[in-house]
């Protein structure tokens, strides 16, 4: 069996996708679990002059940076070809892969999240980071 990799975008105009990568998983509130579509995950900010980014999810803040991938990723999409070859009844026949994008960069967050205090107060903040628990005070 042979599967072709098609590419209609051409070498110069392959649309660029992006990766946002973080350790662990993001969990939504149970009430949203099965309808994540359109739900906001967080805010990505680029505060300083370096390639630094912060990603705020709920009460957590992640710090990361934009890094180029050592080797690019291609985004391939499986395309089922319809009734091209009636003889081959097995599902595997008539599949093609199409290049739909390329990924060259990812914004990577590899540190543990920092707990955010809604109204920063020096004393509380210090205690919070030393105990490692998120103490939330008004």
């Amino acid at each position: 069996m042979q599967i072709r990799i098609k590419c209609s975008c051409g070498a110069d105009s392959c649309p660029e996708w992006a990766i946002l990568e973080l350790q662990g998983i993001v969990e939504a509130q149970p009430s949203f679990q099965d309808r994540l579509q359109n739900l906001e995950i967080g805010q990505l900010c680029r505060p300083s002059s370096q390639e630094n980014y912060t990603f705020t999810i709920g009460y957590h803040e992640l710090t990361g940076s934009k890094v180029p991938l050592k080797k690019p990723f291609l985004v391939l999409k499986k395309v089922k070809l319809m009734d091209v070859d009636q003889r081959n009844e097995d599902n595997s026949a008539g599949t093609e892969l199409e290049v739909v994008g390329i990924i060259r960069h990812r914004i990577l967050f590899k540190t543990r999240p920092k707990a955010l205090i809604s109204k920063p107060q020096p004393v509380v903040k210090e205690r919070a980071s030393s105990t490692g628990s998120s103490v939330l005070t008004k």
Partner: peptide, 24 residues
Amino acid sequence: LNSSISIAYHPQFGPHDDLILLEL
């Protein structure tokens, strides 16, 4: 610099098993 963007799940967010990443 000094700007932000909202990250959200796509209206068609899902497993999309037909999308494959190939490192090369």
